[in-house]
Design a protein around this nucleic acid. Structure first.
Lengths: 106, 106
DNA sequence: TGCATACTTGGTCAAATTACCAAATAACTG
DNA sequence: CAGTTATTTGGTAATTTGACCAAGTATGCA
């Protein structure tokens, strides 16, 4: 594996890692319905404003969302909507896992 | 959000988190080509045997892979091949991010 | 200008992650 | 059975993560 391959692998993993947190995944799901300001999330997510802001920063650095300041508010939006297509597959993984656990009970 | 929704969100995030490590992502990519024993990975990945084993355990717990012992070797295989479809989208995210960085230079 | 609102940033701390080594287990081999 | 190979498990140390609080910045409004 070349150094370039390694870098690409690392970059891809970073994106997935950014998605790998309940709060951030929730944010992505919400953003798939449309843009949202930080304050909008602060209400829904039961966390500190600063925590919400930091999670959004992680998503931004991963390249998953864009932000735009309008007035006093900062609006975030999903940059690449295709990430939502992951969800079906993830659910398939969970189902397959559940099925395997059920197998153990037989 | 109900407690059940929360649990589902958490479970999904766990799957993504499992994918969010360069070594594990590499393993998944390799497994998409066919099953592989732990020793096969130990060679390719420049890490300790125990480290490799632990990464595979993480993937297994996430429901992403299955293992089967045959003789002295343990073979792992991808349980849900659809995860490979993520890659195109992830690459799109990276490209979009690169494009945004390029914008800054204008 | 001065104060409130909306965020972000920096600091701190506990918990989780990851890597390695050493030791334990399991299955073949002579 | 003794020794070797393949893999997992347990322990430990370094690093990263995630949550909160407090302080800083920026915008809008009286």
């Amino acid at each position: 594996m070349t150094r370039k391959d390694q870098a690409l692998l690392h970059a891809k993993a970073q994106v997935l890692k950014a998605l790998g947190h309940p709060t951030r995944l929730f944010m992505i799901q919400e953003l798939s319905k449309g843009e949202r300001c930080v304050c909008g999330f602060a209400e829904q997510v039961g966390a500190d404003f600063s925590t919400v802001s930091k999670h959004l920063t992680v998503l931004k650095h991963a390249g998953l969302v864009d932000d735009e300041k309008r007035g006093q508010q900062v609006f975030y939006r999903l940059r690449v909507p295709c990430v939502m297509q992951f969800m079906n597959c993830i659910e398939a993984v969970l189902k397959s896992k559940a099925a395997a656990s059920a197998d153990l009970l037989r």
